[in-house]
C-alpha cells in the first residue's frame, strides 16, 4: 500500500468515527498530506539541532525517530484525533507537559 492510499484510508476511517459531515475531497486529502509532510520535516529538522550537544546522539536520534515516523504514518491524522475539543485530552496533555517540563528543568544542569 502506498502512502497516499494509507492516508486516504485513515482519513475515511477517522471521518467515519467522528461522523463528520465533510466529504473526502481533493482539498481535504492534500491538506492532510501537507500537514503530514510539514510535521515529519519539522521533527527531523528539530532533531538536527541536537548536534549542538553531540553529533553521534543526533545521528542515533535521527535514525530512530525517522524510522518511527515512517512506521507510524499518517501522523497528521493521529495528531488531529488527539487535538479535539475533548476536555479530558486537553487536561491530559497539560498535565503531561507540566510533568515533563518540571522534571527536565529540575534535573537539568543549570549550566547546560
Amino acid at each position: 500500500m502506498t502512502l497516499y492510499d494509507a492516508i486516504i484510508e485513515k482519513v475515511r476511517e477517522i471521518e467515519k468515527k467522528t461522523r463528520m459531515e465533510a466529504r473526502v475531497t481533493n482539498i481535504s486529502v492534500s491538506a492532510v498530506l501537507t500537514a503530514e509532510l510539514t510535521i515529519v520535516s519539522t521533527i527531523l529538522l528539530v532533531i538536527l539541532m541536537i548536534r549542538k550537544l553531540d553529533v553521534y546522539i543526533m545521528v542515533l536520534f535521527l535514525l530512530l525517530v525517522g524510522f518511527m515516523l515512517f512506521s507510524m504514518t499518517p501522523i497528521a491524522v493521529i495528531l488531529r484525533r488527539e487535538q479535539t475539543d475533548s476536555f479530558y485530552k486537553m487536561i491530559f496533555y497539560v498535565i503531561l507537559t507540566f510533568g515533563v517540563l518540571i522534571t527536565l528543568l529540575y534535573w537539568g544542569n543549570i549550566n547546560v
Partner: peptide
C-alpha cells in the same frame, strides 16, 4: 508553530 499550522490546514 508546527502543531498550530498543520492543524490549521486540516480544519474545515
Amino acid at each position: 508553530m508546527a502543531l498550530g499550522i498543520s492543524m490549521a490546514i486540516m480544519q474545515t
